[in-house]
Simulated assay, not measured.
Amino acid sequence: MKHLKCNIAALACAFVALLSQSCKEKAATGAAGNYKTITASPSACVLEKEYTAILRGVQSVEVRPQVSGTITKICVSEGAHVKRGQTMFIIDQEPYRASLRAAEADVSSARAAVASAQLELEDKRQLRRSGVVADYDVSQAQCTLDEQLAALRNAEAKLAAARTDLSYTEVKSPADGVIGMINYRLGALVSSSIDEPLTTVADVSSVHAYFSVTESEAQRLVADHGSLDKAIATLPCVKLRLGSGEELSAEGTVDAVSGNVDEATGSVAMRATFANPSRILFSGGSATIVIPYKYTNRIIIPQEATYEIQDKKFVYRVVDGKTKSKEITVEPLSDGKRYVVTDGLKKGDVIVAEGAGLLSDGMEIKVKK
């Protein structure tokens, strides 16, 4: 009886083991079955890399007064176009006109004093030739003339300053462009030390888009082209995507790269310029720079066909119907969807195109229809 129980227990264990093995085989077959595959073949593609950008007009200038006073007239409106030298604000001119008149009077007085000193000097010289006065008297008259000439030059300098100050009461546009918000109204007391500018003038006929790339990307540009200047010259035209998702019709060019790495972010600043004749772009706005990189005669694979182990990338080739892992190297640039393979695959290799992380070596593959 005891022997019979042992046999029954042994049979039960064997059945469980066989059932478990059968389940594992079915699970393995199910995990590896019906996977999409692709055949490696050189082709051309364009990978796009996106970067967040801040927009600035090619020129954006703060307009500040150079003299103190109250605003008596505002000659422009917000958002209007202005030309360089166009009057925008007028600051109370009466105090500066009075100063100018006083300076003109001082100059006239100084000129009269110079004329009087010159007459005195000539008189002393005549008397010296007649022996009436000594050389000392002539020298004293010459010193008096020199003093009056210095006083005249000082008065003329003050007159020039008074004229300049009066001209500064007309605050003019420093550049062609579009006026921003006006921060002060009629009657406001302003000076050169005000916290906020009167307004800003931005030239947005063209717009600079500032963005940053990683230090490694900048180093790769230099390594590939030999210098930053050569890298800039060979970079492709770039696109600009607005916050609405719409792409600007005109392409731009990358025309400047910073020579410094931002210590806080480890990034390198770059600048692209876009024409903006219709004023679609606003200074201070945000957008996305899209840089296309073109590749020809390269093997392109989807990223989901790969898996990583210790920063190394692998794919599963299909050899005689079974999976076989293969390490590959790819271009550092990626658009988040595809990789450009530089080594590890050759034309005609068949690889599993999806779910590589769920596979292992030696699993049977059934091609998904």
Rank of each mutant, 00 (worst) to 15 (best):
L4G: 02
C6Y: 13
A9D: 01
A10T: 11
A17S: 09
Q21Y: 15
K24G: 01
E25D: 13
A31S: 10
A32F: 03
Y35T: 05
A40H: 05
C45A: 13
K49L: 14
E62M: 10
I71A: 07
E78C: 06
A80C: 06
K83F: 01
D92G: 06
P95S: 09
Y96N: 12
A105D: 09
A115T: 10
K124I: 04
L127I: 05
D135M: 11
Y136S: 14
Y136A: 15
D137W: 07
Q142E: 13
C143M: 15
A151M: 11
L159A: 09
A162D: 00
E170P: 03
V171D: 08
K172Q: 08
G177L: 03
V178T: 14
V178L: 11
M181A: 10
A188G: 02
A188C: 01
E196H: 08
T199N: 01
D203F: 01
V204L: 02
S206I: 10
Y210S: 14
T214E: 10
S216H: 05
A223C: 06
D224P: 02
G226E: 07
S227P: 02
L228W: 14
L235P: 02
S244A: 01
L248Q: 12
A250P: 00
G259E: 06
G259I: 06
G266L: 08
A275L: 08
A275R: 13
N276H: 02
Y295I: 05
T306D: 04
E308Y: 11
E308K: 12
I309F: 00
I309N: 04
D311S: 15
R317L: 14
K326N: 14
K326L: 10
E327R: 10
I328Q: 07
S334C: 04
D335P: 02
D335K: 06
V340N: 01
K346W: 08
K346A: 11
A353D: 04
E354Q: 12
L358T: 13
L359W: 03
S360A: 07
E364V: 15
I365V: 12
